[in-house]
């Protein structure tokens, strides 16, 4: 098991290399006036040239990339062009906000979707099932930012129940978390429903009933534990959606997380900030995927056996 984890951690290295190259290259192609963004409006051409030289922007792409990577290997992700602050530190300062938003959204999604998925599966092909699935279809097809704006319009502007901007306590979390969570809930509902439909036809469910287990026990003890494997897969795969969804919601609701950090950094061509943030997001995603895989082993003894065998 430990060897498996180590192996997975090693696999992160090529991923990081490739991501950094693509991001660095993309930022280079995007162009934009890096120096102009950093200097006051009335800066002279000499000042501009001096800064360009100082940042090393005159060097060819390969040299700049190599220099960046040399820094990265020693753990130095550079400083922001805009604020002059350390990239890693800035990212880490913002990370808890995004994790809070993403985590809450995920919890909201699970609370809605897993019971709904089970309910629709148990009432397959009835109006209850159809209603649930229409909700899910609506949730999947609805763009995240539009939902965010609608929620803001209703609950913040019209009803004035909740704040629409900023992060000043738990109630500021409600609307962004709902925005991200509802889209996610739709997907998890569909997965839960199909996983449950598959499981309730299995022979071991009949075995459990024949033992005298109650309907509840058969569904939640025998069924759900088996259905959790595809459900966790879906959640794991949708985690990128949590991140991108959060990024959009952060911009819409002025939530000071990583999404908004990257968005603003791209806007101001803050190359070290963008590259560093995205590499760190990449590492974060890899770790989350690894955790999801480890949860499988916890849920399914057959997978655990596989991990141990392959080492």
């Amino acid at each position: 098991m430990i060897r498996y984890v180590l192996k997975r951690l090693l696999f992160m290295i090529p991923t990081i290399l490739l991501t950094s190259l693509i991001i660095y290259w993309a930022m280079d192609l995007a162009g934009g006036d890096v120096v102009g963004n950093m200097l006051p409006e009335n800066a002279t051409q000499e000042q501009r040239d001096a800064l360009t030289e100082e940042l090393g922007l005159n060097d060819p792409f390969v040299v700049r990339y190599a220099r960046y990577m040399a820094g990265l290997v020693t753990g130095d992700m550079g400083v922001s062009y805009k604020t002059g602050k350390d990239v890693f530190k800035t990212f880490m300062e913002r990370l808890p906000m995004t994790l809070a938003l993403g985590g809450t959204a995920l919890i909201v999604a699970c609370i809605i979707s897993i019971p709904l998925g089970i309910y629709t599966a148990l009432n397959q092909n009835t109006w209850k099932d159809t209603t649930g699935m229409v909700f899910a279809l609506f949730g999947v097809s609805m763009p995240n930012f539009w939902l965010g704006l609608m929620l803001m319009l209703i609950f913040a502007v019209k009803l004035n129940w909740l704040p629409s901007q900023g992060a000043d306590g738990p109630k500021y979390l409600v609307l962004p978390a709902l925005t991200v969570g509802l889209g996610l809930a739709a997907l998890i509902t569909r997965t839960t429903r199909s996983a449950m439909l598959d499981v309730i036809r299995q022979d071991y469910m009949t075995t459990a009933k024949a033992k005298g287990a109650s309907h509840r026990r058969v569904i939640y003890y025998h069924g759900l534990k088996n259905a959790m494997i595809p459900i966790v897969t879906a959640i794991g795969m949708q985690f990128s959606l949590v991140m991108t969804g959060s990024a959009l919601a952060e911009v819409v609701f002025s939530w000071p997380g990583i999404g908004r950090l990257v968005f603003e950094s791209i806007d101001s061509r803050d190359i070290p900030m963008v590259t560093g943030s995205i590499i760190l997001c990449c590492v974060l995603m890899s770790i989350i995927n690894l955790i999801v895989d480890l949860i499988y082993a916890f849920l399914d003894p057959r997978i655990k056996a596989q991990y141990s065998n392959k080492g």
Binding site: Q202, Y204, T206, T207, N226, D300, P301
Partner: peptide, 14 residues
């Protein structure tokens, strides 16, 4: 009590 036909599928894998 009942004994089922296929022992491969009659037991809960988890």
């Amino acid at each position: 009590a009942m004994i089922f036909q296929d022992p491969m599928t009659a037991l809960n894998p988890v």
